[in-house]
Each structure stands twice: as C-alpha cells, then as structure tokens.
Write a protein that binds this DNA or RNA. Structure first.
Lengths: 358, 358
DNA sequence: GCGCCGATTGTAAACGATTACAGTGTGAAT
DNA sequence: ATTCACACTGTAATCGTTTACAATCGGCGC
C-alpha cells in the first residue's frame, strides 16, 4: 500500500497549518484565498483524509455494522441492499458480517464489529427476546435496530412485519379454502423467533377454528434433502392437505420435493411460503406467500438507526405491512380428502412426526 | 455509546504498564503470572482493544473493501457470501459498498472504502480494461482482486470464468439444435465487460457457422418492462428462434415476457441464461444456462487477496470452470419456423399455464 | 566480587486527524 | 492615538494503540 499524503504534507505545501487544512476539509470558516491554496495542495497530492485518524480523535467511526444470517437467502440480501440504500449519502459505511444462522458465529461476528467501534448496528438475531449478543450490545451501549425479529415484550427496537398476524392470516385463508388438516415446516424454532411467531399465529387460528394442532416439523436452515422429511409427514395416518413453510426458500424446495414424491401442488397439497422473494412469482406453480417489504424493512431500519445516531431520541419499533400474495400453489382442499392408508402399511418411523404444542 | 475501558485503565488495574498489556493482548512474551493479572483486569473491565487506535498505529486496518453492482442479483449476493467465507478466520472484516451498476456510484463507493484505508479490495467493475476506479486504486496502490470481470489483455488480477468460451458454447449448442437465427439481450454493454465477452463468443461462433450476426438488444440493468423490447424483436421480419440473455435475471424475465406475448418457450423460442442462480432450476420451464461457481468465485478472490496481503507476491488471475446446464427452456428449432405472428392461433394464457412434470 | 546475559517490564514517541485556546492583524469607534 | 471587536490562523494537546529503546534484576561464570 503506497504512502498516502497526510494532512501535514498538505499543510506544508499550502504554506498553512494543519489546523487550517482540517478546517478547509471540514468546511469551517477560512479565508477564501487560503481555502483555494489548500484545495490546490489537496489536489496536487491526491490527499484523502485518513478516516482512521479522524475516527480516533472524534470517537466516531462513521461505520454501521450489519449482521445477518446469510446472504444466500434473497430475503436478507434484499434487506442489506435496502440498508445500503438507507445509509446512502449519510456518510456512514457498512461493515458486514454473516452468522450463518449459528449463535456462536453471531457472537463472533458482533465481537468483530465492535472491535471496529461501529457507531451503530442493524441486525437479525436468532432470538430477540433471549439474546446473548443483544445483551452484549446493550452492555456496551451501541445503538442498534433489529430487522425481521418480531417485536415482542422485549422492548428492543425492531423493524419488521407482524409475523404472528401473518401466520394467522395464512391459516385463516387455508381454512377458508376448506383445509382441515394443516402442517408447517420451519427452520429450527429455537434459532428463529420469527418462525416461532409465524407458527404461533398459524396454530392459534387453527385452534380457534376447532382444528387439531397443525403438524410441525423443524428442519435445518440449509436443508439439503427435504424429501425424506416430507415423505414422513405424508406417510402419517391423516396427513395435512396444506403446508405452511416458514420461508420461501423452504417452500420452493418443498414444492419440488413434493413433486418428486408424486404429490401434486396444489391438487394434492397446498403450499404457502413466507417472505415474498422475487422468485416466488416465477416458479411453477407460482408460490402463494406472505410478502414482506424486505428492501423497505432494511431501509427503514437504517433510517431509524441514523435518526438515533443524530440524537433524535431512541429508535422506535416499526411494523410494516405484509400482504398475502395469491399464488397457484394453494387451492381448495381436495373434495375427496385422501383417506389414510391402513396402519399396517406405515413404517414405524413415521410416528416420530411431532405435533405442535401451542 | 458508552465509554469503553482503554488499555491504560487495564494497565492501571493490573498494576503494569500499557506496553505489557499490549504484549499480553498480542501474545508477546510476558511472565505467566503477569499475563494472568492482566487477563483478569481485562475480564473485569470488559476491555476490548480499540481497532481504530490499533489501525492508526500499525497502518493496517484489517479491513477488506467489497464493491459490487447490487445485492439484488443473487449472483452477487452469493459471491459476497463466498468472500465472507474466504475471509473467515483471517482476522479481516468486510467493508461493503454497492454501485448499483452506475459508474459514478462506483467511484463514490471506492472513495468511501479508501477513506477507511482498507487493506485490500474485492470488486466487480463495469469495465476492467478501461476503469477509472481501477486506475485510482492502482494509483494509491491498494491490492485488489476483481471478480466476474473477464480476464483480458489488461493485466489485472481477476477471478472469473471464461465468459467468451461460455458464450461460444451457448451458440454452438443452439446451432447444434438447428437454430439459425440467434438473438441476444444484455444489460448495457458499455457498462458490462462480461456481457461484452459473452456476446463476443456468441457472435464469433455464429459467424463461424456461417450464420447472420445475432440480433443484439441492450436493456437497462434493472429492466422494468422487457415486453416492449421483445415485442419489437419478434415483430422483425425474421425473428430469432433462440435468445441468449446475458444473465439469469434477464432470462427469467424474458421467459415471462415471452409468455405474455404468446410465445411459448421452448416451442417457439429457446432461451438461455447466464450465471446459474439457484432459482433457474425451479422456474418453469427450467432455465438452460451457463453455471458459474459464484460462491467459489468469491471465496477464491478473497483467498487470492489474502495471499497477496500476507506478502506472497502478486495475486494471479484465476479462471474457474463453468458448465452448461441443460434446461427445459431450450429445444430444437421449430421445423416450421414461425414467420407470421402465431399469437392469433393461441390464447396467451394457455401458454403460461402448465402443469408440473415431476 | 565483577561483569555480563537473558528475561521481563517500563518510558515515551509515534500514527493522522480534530479542536480548545491563543495569537495576529485589520478597521472602526472614541 | 488608543482601544476594541472581529476575522482568521497557528500551537499544541489529545484520541488508543504499538513498539523501539532503555532500565531493572537475578543469576552465572570466572
């Protein structure tokens, strides 16, 4: 890395003191003629103020840390794009980290961000209500705003949609179409408070309609083979006729796996996703899902944080509207609900399928 | 932001000098007993070394700048994920910027990254052979590695696939299927050297086969309405029977737009994309495309850069293998090449509604 | 007993900026 | 002429580290 000009060299060349150069750079009052001389020196030397020196003195890094599970899921990529958009023009830059859905990496990522003395953080954590990293962040008093994590009794500022209401809406819609046996698959609930909220709403609506608790299966986030899981679900005596997936990636994989298993979507099974990623409208059949405004979620979170950083009180939680997107992956419950196969046919392991406990 | 303990306070509490604390932190030789006392003080105070102070003194930020067009295209999101993976455990963090495919924002993004004195850069630029920002980066002598940008006569280190050969392979395949009139749509060629390379290979193969030069249409990167563009292409006297799109997002949009125009894919028109984003296998018809190993591209670029930063000579260019993915979006050229508008024969919706084929 | 060595620790000067505070010079008011 | 306000600029301390260099100490060989 080549030596860069320092403020001292600029000062020397312009024949002024470093203080004056600093003032010119930062737009403080200086005589126009002096400013011109300094400007010239800056241009000649290709001087670029050293942000590190500045940060050290001002105790402000002008850095915002971003920590999300993974960029491989478009819903997060879009949010980060939105954060970048929201931060644009503010003079802040984004320091990025991914947790890969793992709590230990979440912790490590935060440690790294804190080392750089980020001025604030935008992040999605496994569980906002019981989060070691959030406790840490609060202990060091770095302002932060959550994205996607549901707003709960924890009084933590978050920008999200109403996950619970959305889960409820999904169930109500399916029930309205005549479905009576509902199922849900989700990433590990222990590591996703949003999936829990979606499930809670979903199950609550089912209960209110007098239906049995929806079958619930948890799968790893980076699901390799969904087929065995689905095979198991549908080998059960009274399999669901509609499946709610805690995110679109899962839903799309589920539709594919169901196809491979010989189940038609939506004729045999309806499938609903969550997130509203762009691809959902392009897959076949098009995916019914809950659309959250991801880019806007990110942008809003960034703006909230920026507001907080410029001293406008605490950042507030914001609930943005979600919308149910109709898609060809849901249909009415089959008139002839596929009767359960004789119990003797069932492989024993099908019994491990768990049901939810609200 | 709460006051954090400094090395001085730790030193005081442990009853040693700051030099000793620094040595403990950085693993230099100190008496075990002293180290223990310091460690305790660190724990008690919750001390976390200030990276800004460290960077200033050591003239190394341990930051790697990443600049890509947009996270909205999964191909870049995946690459960034790969970069994060490649950097993991190295002690470096990622400073992120997006150019939105615009040269001015490219420039602004780089300026911001340089301000933080990044130790190195991984980036995708509009045109590696004639790039103002690369000239700038070279002027300030910050090590960098390009991703996706084709390796050309410019001697700039880049990690990519052989775009030209891939373009050629696409043409050869289409020609092998009997296609004689080829077309291509691409983002603005002036702002994408990779699209140019793909086109060059594509056109070269067509020429060698004695075919007329493929129709070429450029569209904005964030294409809102492809329909008018495609309508125009297919209103021409002898429209192409196969369309090569410079990336998958475009290809997927093209398939949708063609459907809306009453052209069946692949029966009326074959469509091939580029990138191999995951969604391609899920859309209907599944997308034929050139698959590039995006995550690996990113990871490799990061590793190259890291190698360069730890002083192992200059980073080299790396060409990773691409593969042609078969997909249902290409088929043999229609025996009866459709000359007149077939739209009158078929209701448009019959072409877009398909049942799944497991 | 002396000098020297190695191990350990301390002192203080950077790194590149910002910013109180002090200094200078000008013109206007008296 | 003297004073004062004001506009402008300079001096120097400071932010939190790292690290060259110096200092201290106990022990060891002679």
């Amino acid at each position: 890395m080549g030596r860069r000009a320092t403020i001292r060299e600029v000062a020397e060349l312009a024949g002024v003191s470093v203080a004056t150069v600093s003032r010119v750079i930062n737009g403080a009052a200086v005589a126009p003629e002096t400013a011109a001389r300094v400007g010239e020196a800056v241009a000649v030397l290709g001087y670029r103020p050293n942000g590190v020196g500045r940060s050290l003195k001002t105790a402000s890094s002008r850095l915002i840390g971003v920590l999300i599970p993974s960029l491989a899921n478009p819903v997060f990529a879009e949010a980060v794009d939105g954060i970048a958009e929201g931060v644009d023009g503010s003079g802040y830059s984004l320091l990025f980290g991914a947790s890969d859905y793992r709590r230990d990496r979440e912790r490590a990522g935060i440690e790294a961000l804190l080392r750089y003395r980020v001025d604030g953080l935008v992040l999605t954590v496994a569980d906002a209500a019981a989060s070691e990293v959030l406790d840490l962040i609060e202990a060091v008093e770095v302002p932060y705003v959550l994205v996607y994590n549901p707003a709960g009794d924890h009084r933590r500022p978050t920008v999200t949609v109403d996950n619970r209401a959305a889960g409820r809406a999904v169930a109500e819609r399916l029930i309205g179409l005549g479905h009576r046996r509902l199922g849900m698959i989700a990433g590990r609930l222990a590591d996703s408070d949003r999936a829990r909220a979606r499930h809670a709403g979903f199950a609550a609506a089912a209960a209110e309609a007098g239906l049995p608790a929806p079958t619930l299966r948890e799968v790893p986030f980076t699901a390799p083979g969904l087929e065995p899981v689905l095979a198991e679900i549908f080998a059960a005596p009274a399999p669901p006729t509609a499946l709610f997936c805690s995110n679109d990636m899962l839903a799309i994989a589920a539709v594919a796996a169901l196809g491979a298993l010989g189940r038609a979507v939506p004729d045999d099974v309806s499938v609903v996703g969550f997130d509203g990623i762009a691809i959902g409208t392009l897959v076949h059949p098009s995916l019914a899902t809950v659309v959250q405004p991801s880019r806007e979620l990110g942008r809003t979170a960034a703006q909230q944080l920026l507001g907080r950083l410029s001293g406008e009180g605490a950042a507030a939680s914001v609930i943005l509207p979600h919308v149910l997107r109709h898609g060809k992956s849901v249909g009415p419950a089959a008139k002839h609900s596929p009767t359960a196969s004789p119990a003797s046919n069932l492989p024993a392991h099908s019994l491990v399928t768990r049901t939810s406990t609200p």
